[in-house]
Design a protein around this nucleic acid. Sequence first.
DNA 1: ACTCTCGGAGACTAAACTGA
DNA 2: CAGTTTAGTCTCCGAGAGTG
Length: 609
Amino acid sequence: MMTRGFSDTAAAYAPRQPSRLNPASVRLSISNAAQQRGTVSMPTSPLLSHQRDAMWQEGPRSAQAFFGLSEASLPNPDQFHQDQHQQQPSWTAQHYQPALPQTHEFELEDSPPEQEVPRKKRAQVRIACTHCQKACKRCSNTRPCERCLKYGLKDCVDSTRKPRKTGVKRGPYKRRDVRYDSPPLHTGYNDPYPPSSASGTYQPTATYGSEHSLTPLSPRPPQPPQPQSQSQQPLSIPTDDIGLGLGLGLGLYPPGPLQHALSAALSGPRWVHGQRLPPDSEIAMGTGTSGGSGTGGDGSASPGVLYPPTPGGPFPISLNTGIADPFSRAVSPIRAKLELDLHRAADSIYQLHHSGDSIHSAPHHDAHSPHTHNHTLLSNINSPNDITTIEQWDNHSDISVEQWDNTNNNNSRTVEQWNINNSGNANVNVNVNVDQWDNNNINVNFTDPFPASPHDHNPAVPSPSRPGTTAPGPLYSSTTPTTAPPIPLPPVHSPAMIALKRIRKPSLKTLMAPGSRAGSPGPSSSTSAISLSSAVFGQGHETGEQLVSPMLFNQPMSLDDEAENGSWDDSSALRLTPSTGGQIGDAPAVVTMEEMGGVQFDGMMPFPS
DNA sequence: ACTCTCGGAGACTAAACTGA
DNA sequence: CAGTTTAGTCTCCGAGAGTG
Ligand SMILES: [Zn+2]
Ligand SMILES: [Zn+2]
């Protein structure tokens, strides 16, 4: 008997190492081995769920069986053969075709039956339908998909995929495998970065040593389980240790013993809060983007994505569609953080000025907005725009500025860069509280925690005690114009905050019962949610009344928390956590971002409307 | 007895790099 | 510029919680 179905995958696919040994898993492995031999036997373990048992059934099913199958429905193998990139003869091909074999070792065809089964790759459809996606369940390549057919769901359409980000710089790659005469001294992951070098200095020109001692001294690049972004931050050097109090992660490197090392590091990419900033060389080249590849970074209307070259880019920042991306998994908090960084950077420059450093320009008040603090510290070098924000600043060379043009209140961003010979150093800590986040304009209204005063906008007048700064500084609040989404979202309900309650969805069984009103609006504003969802996803259902899908998928919860209130579960963008208006995911609306260096973010996450 | 939720491992694959 | 490495994004497994 052929094992089929989602649960097969569980069998064929050795379970992810469970944190605790699960007897069922063991059995699954065994049966899996049998399957690989081609002698698929039905698992008999009572430990398996009923769903798993049900999956073995074939042929038409009674309603009971139907539901009993739960998600363990099985895609028709034939249909799966249609999978564009995978064709394999064996049953395994149905769900576990090897992906393009980066990992041949996982291929199981003809693997020895008796030994521990190498894990079979779990095949995935390229794009799941929206329903399956929301349910986190296996989809098929057919439309309607197997699951939707099973449950009679309408509107089985491909979900949308977010375009991959571009312009994300990476650290140097691991050297390509170089064959030597002598056999490798070790196998497995060739780690050129022993722990002792974890905080080493990047030496891009390092040559091969013996036994694969590859470019040994760069900041420790990604260990397989470790995110690169953290390990490659020169900024991980405690600012206190190098005499800087800026603490902004803006690349302030003081002169001194570390200078050379830092300079070396600075000659390459820099990492700021997990974002790679471009090497100075890139900046100096005037690529028009800082930190990003050219993709849209120059502010020219590159049709689609304008990925922020560096932190501080527009939000949302990633969709080629130009539509604000409510799904981005890394937007809201990060954006908030980036905004803050930008402002703090600007503030730092301001402070730098006040410290009597060599920056010879003065901030002046921005006439366009009483709340806009003009960071045109560089105005004397012909900054054309109203607001400039320091994007990068390293002490050994330049200040790079990203400019935000708010001249006509158009919220457009033009990116320019300034390289200033600056020998100045700064020792500034700036604490900023974010009081408001204008959801409509995607503006951030930063309010300085210190009371406004005539010192505002008047650098000539020293500000009274400004904690955390070495020099008296200005007080100000500012608004950072940010790039509006190229294509605004359809009007959503404004204010974009609609309280939603977590309401458990009725079971499918209930929903599909004769009396169930498919598509009926949920307890809260599901109708609007539907329209919103439709608008956002362009999936064609127009009204709640026309929706035929079970209510399951029309629940306000699934529909759209993300769009309705602009909050989402950051850990998983597609799992939008229902929340009440005052919450972000499960977190309270007032979020203290400790990791932001004391900056507080009060209010909603930014969300375009 | 099921169904639903969702954390997170793993898959996929495009962008970034590398070396020729 | 082809091949390799890396990582962004997605799929969906499977344990646990909730429902009827
Ligand atoms: Zn589907
Ligand atoms: Zn479907």
